[in-house]
Design a protein around this nucleic acid. Sequence first.
DNA 1: AATGAATGAGTTTTCATTCAT
DNA 2: TATGAATGAAAACTCATTCAT
Lengths: 215, 215, 215, 215
Amino acid sequence: MANRAARQTRRDPEKKSRDILKAARKEFATAGFDGARVDKIAAKSKFSKGLIYHHFQSKDELFRSVLEQLYQELSEENAELYLDDFEPEEGVVRLIEHTFDYFAKNPDFITLVNNENLMKAQHLKKSENVRKSFEPLRESLATLLKQGAEQGDFRGDVDSTELYISIVALGYFYLSNMSTLSVVFDKPLGGPDSVAVRKQHITDVILGYLKNKEG
Amino acid sequence: MANRAARQTRRDPEKKSRDILKAARKEFATAGFDGARVDKIAAKSKFSKGLIYHHFQSKDELFRSVLEQLYQELSEENAELYLDDFEPEEGVVRLIEHTFDYFAKNPDFITLVNNENLMKAQHLKKSENVRKSFEPLRESLATLLKQGAEQGDFRGDVDSTELYISIVALGYFYLSNMSTLSVVFDKPLGGPDSVAVRKQHITDVILGYLKNKEG
Amino acid sequence: MANRAARQTRRDPEKKSRDILKAARKEFATAGFDGARVDKIAAKSKFSKGLIYHHFQSKDELFRSVLEQLYQELSEENAELYLDDFEPEEGVVRLIEHTFDYFAKNPDFITLVNNENLMKAQHLKKSENVRKSFEPLRESLATLLKQGAEQGDFRGDVDSTELYISIVALGYFYLSNMSTLSVVFDKPLGGPDSVAVRKQHITDVILGYLKNKEG
Amino acid sequence: MANRAARQTRRDPEKKSRDILKAARKEFATAGFDGARVDKIAAKSKFSKGLIYHHFQSKDELFRSVLEQLYQELSEENAELYLDDFEPEEGVVRLIEHTFDYFAKNPDFITLVNNENLMKAQHLKKSENVRKSFEPLRESLATLLKQGAEQGDFRGDVDSTELYISIVALGYFYLSNMSTLSVVFDKPLGGPDSVAVRKQHITDVILGYLKNKEG
DNA sequence: AATGAATGAGTTTTCATTCAT
DNA sequence: TATGAATGAAAACTCATTCAT
């Protein structure tokens, strides 16, 4: 039995990779790329350092894999939104709320992406499979905007990419910069109340903008 | 006179500190806190490592000083806006444009602040003089919002802190995440045209929101 | 066989530890704790600095291990004395001579222990296995003293711990402070004649004291 | 007045040296030669590092001066014993007790001398004025021993230098090695009771030895 | 005489990566 | 495949000493 379990472990390299990636993601998110320690990742994943280097060639490659997995997950979640099935306003609200909630529930995403930006996206640039990964969502949003404009609900001069960036920005920045904002505004922003207020504010801003047709 | 100047140089520890801080800011912005090398800061500043440790006690303290200087500069620039002298809409536009331009012209600010957020603002928390440093600006903005509402130009339900965070977020996030965004949208966002478009979009969003009085 | 031996070497971390400890002991004894250089220990032991830090966590831990080994060796040597097998006077003389000879042959012991005392025994305090390591010897001495008193050879008011400290002190101090004593008495004390004279003097003092029953 | 005080300071370099030496002695005793910091000595003495280097040429020279002062003080105290004015036994007891008390009251002496021995007396060897500084005391002790032997109180085969070293050893070692002894005997030796017991034991040993004429 | 800023060689320690087994 | 001991290059930080003022 023990033998069989061992064999199982031996024969499931994907499971191994997943475990390593999970540990790596946590470590990179906690300590940043430069602060992360391969030793700690090994300890957390219960595999040896040698094995990690066997599966991934370097710390950089490991980080790249973490990022790819991260964007892959986000894409999958976004695909579940089925924006095309909703009326323009409802669709936009769904997108806003889902985007905010996703970042709020996945603080590691923000940390890791910020890290990657500090390094000028050098890892992501090598990942073909994340290129254009937001295209489906952008297209759905463009459709909503077009329909909204045609129905007279939304203004007609809105660029879908810019708007999506704005929807992300309003939540991402708040969550990403919470620590320093709390200091410079001398007010803790991390509480559930503050977060709920923020989420409502974001919806107000985006909808207020879209529905102001005198633009 | 030359003599005096020489003496001045020798005896001007503030000048020295400024030079060190300048070099440190560049290195921290380029490499991040963990990636930054005190050796490089010494080389860039033309002073010895020993001197750096004589003036600042540790790499952490040096980073803290860089951050303090950074927020100090931003506060000073913000004070020059004289928002109180303008009509509501003009004032808000000034604030939006100035904020965006400031971040665009000072990419180091974003890098350094992101770094500090990755470290949970541990350095900034020790800096008493940055606490509430945005209070004057927030108050000016609150006044503009109130006047704008009274004059019937702006909606009346806007929280000044949330709005200011939004104004910052819309530009900061774009600039901060430009590298990864360029990859996932497969479209270079750093060019002057893109930046100008972005700036206009931000103004549109904020004004569109504020001037939509149907809440 | 050769193969096996090679493997042995590779796989014998205890041998490695012993080699490192040997080099460390020499360096610490020569230069003192603060004066000792981990670089030199690495060079002497033919292992890399990294390996030393892999086996021992810090310079302090390395020093602690050296001390533990030191006391371990002394305990083992003391156990070989079999004091219980001898008549009181002969047993005491054996102890005196062995103690003196041990310190004379192991000058590193004195240097290292003096160092540890300069540091208030901070390392030894963490070593559980040296606590009470002299208890067997003290007990044997106590037995000898009791027997000697019963047989009318020794005085009856002697504390075994105090006496053992005295036996050690008379030799240890002479060897430990030889350098300064040679200066202040303007007379080299390190020669074999001086040492032999000293050893005889110590035996005279202790026996003279023990056998003076008018105390 | 202030002026005068300043002048006074300026004109009293000996006072300055004394203050520096006092601070240096404390620092060297606390941290050992290698552990001592010139910066700390400067801070403690309220003089600048430059001044310290002006008066003493190096850390080594400073340590040498501390040692010289130390032995000078001990010599002066010993001269106050007036051993020649006492009967043999009383004189020897005075010497034993004074020696023990001196070390007990001046723990720095032990620390500093041990340090110097770890460095093979390299500093003391350069100090002409400590050579033979114990000659007067040794001579007084020799006289006491001779008188005691003539009066039939003491045995006649005692070398004064060996005996003096023993008198010192029995107290010095106990005080010097108290930290490690407390660990290996698992018993705190620093308390006033233990010290008093030790002092009595030393007197017993030396007198017991001297008065045992069957030697 | 007096200061303390400035230096640079050197310390302990760390860590990504390799490699023998 | 899998391990983890081993390495070496580099990191933050220290400190006796010097030197311009």
